[in-house]
Design a protein around this nucleic acid. Sequence first.
DNA 1: CACCATGTTCCTTG
DNA 2: CCAAGGAACATGGT
Length: 282
Amino acid sequence: MPELPEVEVLARHLAPLLRGKTIRAVHVLRSKVIRPTSVKKLEKSLIGAKFTSLHRRGKYLLFELQRSNAGQIACLGHLGMTGRMFLQPKAAPLPKHTALVLDLGRLNFVYEDTRYFGRFTLDNASVEALGPEPLSEAFDADSFALELKRSAQPIKVKLLDQGLVAGIGNIYASEALFRARISPRRKARSLKRDEVQRLHREIRVVLQEAIDCGSTIPLDFAGEASKDRLFYFGTSAESSQFYEERLQVYDRDGKPCVTCKFAVKRIVQAARSTFYCPKCQR
DNA sequence: CACCATGTTCCTTG
DNA sequence: CCAAGGAACATGGT
């Protein structure tokens, strides 16, 4: 469930559930996801620590914990393509691809990830390379324009660069460009001032709308029912219908453009699918 | 069997 | 040194 809005909704959901809880034990079932941190170091750092806060930065989750004597510590989470994080009763069976479990006493914090592309680590290097938060003042149209001027990549590909602006993924890159009426094939440096301004605005609008949408869904992350409630995840009729209404071009290859009825086109850029309306987006 | 999938990182090439 | 391109990672769905 991994773009900025999904991670934001998850962070808001988990923050109050984790606050004040103390980690009794750490179980690493897939050491790959904690690299470069070692199992020993993670255990030593986390056992006995208490969750104090949880924030999102780009697509990352930043867990802050207080250790009884040793002061504060920060932990970084990332969902990769297929990761989920939730709380469940200690007695509940763990999902097949559970990568890490934090024993919180009565409850377990579970991180499961089918493809194991995600992370749960003490290493925060990747967060420091992130560009501005798109929904904050730090993301301003002028600096955005300057950055785009330095790139010869197609604008769609450039939007996926987390150093340009943090949190946009493959779905919202297509959606923002559609709303801004800009072709994903344009070179980043070729965008005119007003196009950059439209794109800057639509990035913020589409992400904020998605957060608002996700925030209204009754969330149940734990157990079996959790899997398919959110966003693009899930193929249950209820959730996919809910989601499809919000996506205007993504995954609509051959279907009529919601604005002009022309067929939406799928192309491949940097080995990823891009969807756009050739008529509306120039 | 083929191709597709919400992401990042590492290695190579120019 | 830097930007850009492509493969790799791992599993499951269609």
